[in-house]
Amino acid sequence: MATEETAHAAAEAAHQAGMPQLNFATWPNQIFWLVVAMVVIWFVLAKIALPRIGGVLAERKGAIAKDLAAAEELKSKAKAAEGAYTAALDQARAEAAKIIAATKAEIQKELDAATAEADAKISAKAAEGESRIAEIRAGAEAAVAEVAKDTAGALVSALGGSADEAAIASAVSARVKG
């Protein structure tokens, strides 16, 4: 009996000094408060925090998918716009080429007309100049004959001869001609 009691007391003492984990007197208390804590955490998480976070994540996923779709759409729109732009550019280029060609032809026509007119004027002027030159030349030849006749008459008379005017004239004209 006594030994049993001392053993019991020793066990009690060992309990106090030993592992608090194995002090079963505190277990109901620990389990009770742990369950309370777990229920509170579960309530906070399951009823408040997690649905919110899940909602935000789902919303973000949706927003990203939507944005991606919108970006895809914008991309295709941009591509279409680029096509239209290229087509318009090509058309404008063709039109410009046409206008340039037409303008060039017109200018060429005007130029041709002006050239022709100028040519005509130039040839008319040249003809006039030529006729005047011929006239002057004829005038000059007559003057040469006159001077030669006069000079010959004067020379003959100065040499003491009397010159027959008709003979002088024929001699001079023969000389001038020949």
């Binding site: 742990l34 804590a37 509170v40 955490i41 906070v44 925090a49 976070i53 909602g55 935000v56």
Partner: peptide
């Protein structure tokens, strides 16, 4: 236990408050 519960609640509620 209470401090743990408070810390978890504070973190998770603060994390989900802004949305």
């Amino acid at each position: 236990l209470g401090i743990t519960v408070l810390a978890i609640s504070a973190l998770m509620l603060a994390a989900s408050a802004g949305r």
